[in-house]
Design a protein around this nucleic acid. Structure first.
Length: 873
RNA sequence: GCCCGCUUGGCUCAGCGGUAGAGCACUCGCUUCACACGCGAGGGGUCAGUAGUUCGAAUCUACUAGCGGGCACCA
């Protein structure tokens, strides 16, 4: 007999299977030799090179892996393409911080040396997450691994840039942008977050030049007044209508500024008069354009005041300048009042520094034509299909409709340098390479633009850049569009929509057919997990404690709704893994002879009830799981598998098979029973494999079966592995409703008798007698199962007949299908107790009967409800 | 301000037009020859509230309340 530990230790299985799968190339689509195989592909959302595995990754990776493994076992040519993102700002910051410890800045090194240093950092410390993904069991094709700064992907970035520029979609312009004074770069609107802030609203008085009095304006940023070039009021505001066109003297700087009228101003906010700072506020910028106002830049790139702010202010930090402005205004009695005020403030998403809006020359991508492609694709073809459709399709569409131009340049060194060169005359040459630029310019005296592109620019190309575009590679033809994108909801704008637009633009087809948006794992208080809050749960620790497979089940069943992290849940799936282990242990302890059986099942019609029943349950489970996975209904699939394995297979099938399986002396009947047991287990392991790759492989390898016969035909001549075994599709001929109904009757009988035993406090060791009364058809069902009924109810004697003449001193129960069972309890029975039990029973049944009668007595119901419903009742 | 989601047993969540479900927790019994990370038997919910639609509503509609998101140019 095989010696197997009582408790499953996941670590052992996790240690060696992955390496074997990877080495033998099981993850690569080339393993599939079926030329006609359907294709399934996923491009992974590339994690940041600086990143370490967190719950969000683990969640997405689990779902992608489940889908990929499922399709692979169904014989699809399957590619899950892995990669990594260079993560411009994060990575640059990481290395900058490292340099700081050495007392250096990146400027001390210079651009070239700095970038070299970042590459070195990447080689040494980057990509931790890649090995963590191996631990997760992610079946990605490492041979196709891509990094967004790889030469071929960089080439694609330049190619796209040049084409968009030549079409006039990319342009260089001087506009107001979001500037991060800490990271020293511009940011797109999506990289700016709005945080609520308890601040103050300052009321400032601007005196008239040609008359007495002043106009009071309200502002949260008094320091910007140094750059004011107008005061605006609403044209319909009667309080001010006579003052429009007057001239004010801007305090401190003594600049003459006009009072203008603009619809933007809301009369009921503050005083109804707004100071206008075109150079430092996006709205004022627009107003400035409308009214042709001067732009006075008073704040510079380090958020310090410029020379234009005046001698008293130059060099001052913006907040120091604020204090000084207030001090000066107060001194000249021009500060009317200061009130507490809560508003929201723009911060850099990464470093949380307050954004300084300022005017700067940057590269922009015109989005309108791209947006139209994406909207048309959605409206006309319903693509992509969002799962769940509500609310994400609307969120996506609304965002596209209100899309503004994308600021694509960044003042960083780490990233794709913009393929634009300047001649000494200042002409712009955009080209794929320096050589091409020189040829175009007719000179080699060119200076390349210093800026790099937004990291999301290369990410937007990911689904096709990773497949070899712009070459028409086999991979591109085969795997594009990808089947599904699995992602968290927070990058629908940053990434999903941009991939859609770029894919439609450059390939002419959407980059993915479906978008599955996962839920979010929250901490136990319902808060988002975050590094700053320190409330994150480390998936690797969970792996260590409960095993990868148990964690994967927990994550898979999260599906698309948010869920609070609950370690008890993982524990229960750990217990499930152990249950599987022990079920297999039982099978293996009783496996001798199982492999001698040629065909375990033979003609289904001749099988014992419990075998017909388990085959039916197995095939129904396969139908359900296949369908649920096709619909991304991970939660339902997990539940289905859990209950099939635990309830149907362990609690009933194994128990029902025990007598024949555990016979001491070898016999053909025993071996057949053993063969059947092993076969059901084997199929169950295949069903479970996409969710629990390690445990299923570990056990499947141990089973006494002809492993190679289970391998899907698409994988010719591989070393047997459950990951390339055929995923059970349902065999309709094995779904047997009659067997299920008959088995239910047996289960009901056993359960009722157990209930009697329990409530009558009959000791486990006491053997009882059963008297069953049933109609002929059920009589034969029960007769055929007497051994099993006796075993599971601990009965010594069972009599079955058509009458219900039962002894008085018996506990009785009515069964489904009109049968009845009695347990004679001479000397054991407590009549009072039994009466109480039966009274409870009776009340329950009466309640139910009354309800049914009322419903059937309702003429409206009988008349209007569907006939089958009425019959059923 | 606009848009959206959620509210089901003590906890975490399924169900989304036909008699309330799971896991955990709880109670009782059990060294039953795979498993105490187990086995068997139980208790527990007027499905946030109100009004409607329907023969029938946790499930559809409207409104209300609480919670959570997203978007937005209120200086």
């Amino acid at each position: 007999m095989i010696d197997i530990p009582k408790t499953y230790d996941p670590k052992e299985a996790e240690q060696h299977h992955y390496a074997r799968w990877e080495e033998r190339g099981y993850f690569a689509p080339e393993i599939n030799t079926d030329r006609a195989a359907p294709v399934f592909s996923i491009a992974i959302p590339p994690p940041n090179v600086t990143g370490s595995l967190h719950m969000g990754h683990a969640l997405q990776h689990t779902m992608m892996d489940v889908l990929t493994r499922h399709k692979r076992m169904l014989g699809y040519r399957t590619l899950w393409l892995p990669g990594m993102d260079h993560a411009g700002i994060s990575t640059q910051l990481m290395v900058t911080r490292e340099l700081k410890k050495e007392g250096l800045t990146r400027h001390d090194l210079g651009r070239e040396k700095f970038v070299e240093r970042v590459w070195k950092w990447k080689e040494e410390y980057g990509g931790q997450i890649l090995n963590q993904m191996r631990r997760e069991g992610a079946s990605v094709d490492w041979s196709r691994f891509k990094f967004t700064m790889d030469e071929d992907l960089s080439r694609d970035v330049r190619e796209v840039f040049v084409r968009l520029y030549d079409e006039g979609l990319i342009y260089r312009g001087n506009r107001i942008v979001n500037w991060c004074p800490n990271d020293q770069t511009v940011l797109s609107d999506l990289e700016v977050q709005r945080d609520p802030q308890n601040g103050k609203l300052y009321y400032l008085r601007y005196p008239f030049k040609n008359r007495d009095g002043a106009i009071t304006v309200a502002t949260t940023r008094p320091e910007t007044m140094l750059g004011d070039t107008a005061v605006a009021v609403n044209p319909n505001d009667e309080r001010y209508s006579s003052l429009v066109g007057e001239t004010l003297i801007l305090p401190i700087v003594n600049r003459e500024i006009p009072v203008i009228a603009d619809e933007f101003v809301e009369s009921d906010f503050g005083t109804g008069a707004v100071k206008v700072t075109p150079a430092h506020d996006p709205n004022d910028y627009e107003m400035g354009i409308r009214h042709n106002l001067e732009q006075v830049n008073v704040i510079g790139r380090f958020a310090r005041m410029t020379e234009e702010a005046g001698a008293d202010f130059v060099g001052l930090d913006r907040y120091k300048a604020r204090d000084l402005v207030i001090e000066k205004l107060e001194a000249s009695d021009l500060l009317e009042k200061v009130v507490d005020y809560e508003f929201s403030i723009s911060k850099c998403e990464r470093c949380k520094t307050v954004i300084e809006p300022l005017i700067s020359t940057q590269w922009f991508l015109r989005m309108d034509p791209l947006r139209d492609l994406a909207l048309a694709n959605l409206r006309e073809d319903g693509k992509p299909r969002f799962v769940p459709q509500v609310p994400y399709e609307k969120v996506y569409a609304d965002w596209l409709e209100n899309l503004r131009d994308w600021t694509i340049s960044r003042q960083l060194w780490w990233g794709h340098q913009i393929p634009a060169w300047y001649t000494n005359d200042g002409d712009i040459i955009v080209a794929r390479s320096r050589e091409e630029a020189e040829a175009k310019a007719g000179t080699n005296e060119l200076t390349q633009d210093e800026d790099v592109l937004d990291t999301w620019f290369s990410s937007a190309l990911w689904p096709f850049s990773t497949l070899g575009w712009p070459d028409e590679t086999e991979d591109l033809k085969t795997f594009y569009p990808t089947s599904v994108l699995v992602t968290a909801r927070d990058i629908i704008f940053l990434w999903v929509s941009r991939m859609m637009m770029m894919g439609l633009k450059f390939i002419g087809a959407e980059p993915f057919l479906d978008v599955y948006v996962t839920g979010t794992i929250l901490d136990k208080h319902g808060q988002r997990m975050s590094k700053t809050k320190g409330n994150g749960v480390d998936p690797l620790e969970v792996f260590d404690k409960y095993g990868v497979d148990a964690t994967r089940l927990t994550l898979a069943q999260v599906g698309s709704t948010d869920m609070r992290w609950n370690e008890k849940q993982v524990e229960s799936y750990r217990n499930f893994a152990n249950k599987i282990w022990n079920a297999a242990r039982f099978c293996l302890m009783n496996a001798e002879g199982a492999d001698k059986v040629e065909s375990a099942f033979g003609d289904p019609a001749n099988l014992p009830l419990h075998d017909r029943w388990i085959l039916s349950r197995l095939n129904k489970t396969a139908v359900a799981v296949n369908q649920q996975l096709d619909n991304y209904d991970f939660h339902a699939a997990v539940q289905e598998l859990y209950h099939f394995f635990w309830d149907d297979f362990c609690d009933w099938y194994i128990e029902l098979s025990k007598t024949s399986v555990t016979e001491d002396t070898g016999s053909n009947d025993r071996d057949i029973a053993r063969g059947r047991l092993v076969s059901i287990l084997e199929q169950a392991l295949r069903l479970l494999h996409p969710f629990m790759p390690y445990l299923t492989e570990e056990l499947w390898q141990k089973l006494p079966i002809k492993h190679s016969q289970q391998i899907h035909p698409a994988y010719a001549r591989v070393e047997p592995t459950v990951m390339l075994a055929a995923f059970p599709r349902a065999d309709a001929s094995l779904i047997d409703e009659r067997a299920e109904a008959e088995m239910e009757a047996v289960i009901d009988l056993i359960s009722r008798v157990r209930n009697i035993r329990s409530e009558m406090n009959i000791k486990p060791a006491d053997r009882i007698q059963l008297m069953i009364a049933a109609k002929p058809n059920l009589q034969s069902v029960f007769s055929a199962s007497t051994d099993q009924i006796a075993r599971l109810t601990r009965a010594k004697e069972i009599s079955i007949n058509g009458t219900s003449e039962m002894p008085k001193a018996a506990a009785r129960a009515v069964l489904a299908g009109g049968a009845e069972v009695a347990v004679p309890l001479e000397g054991l029975i407590d009549f009072a107790q039994e009466r109480a039990r039966l009274t409870r029973e009776k009340e329950k049944l009466q309640k139910e009967a009354a309800k049914l009668e009322a419903q059937l007595g309702n003429a409206d119901f009988v008349q209007r409800a569907p006939a089958e419903k009425v019959d059923e009742l």
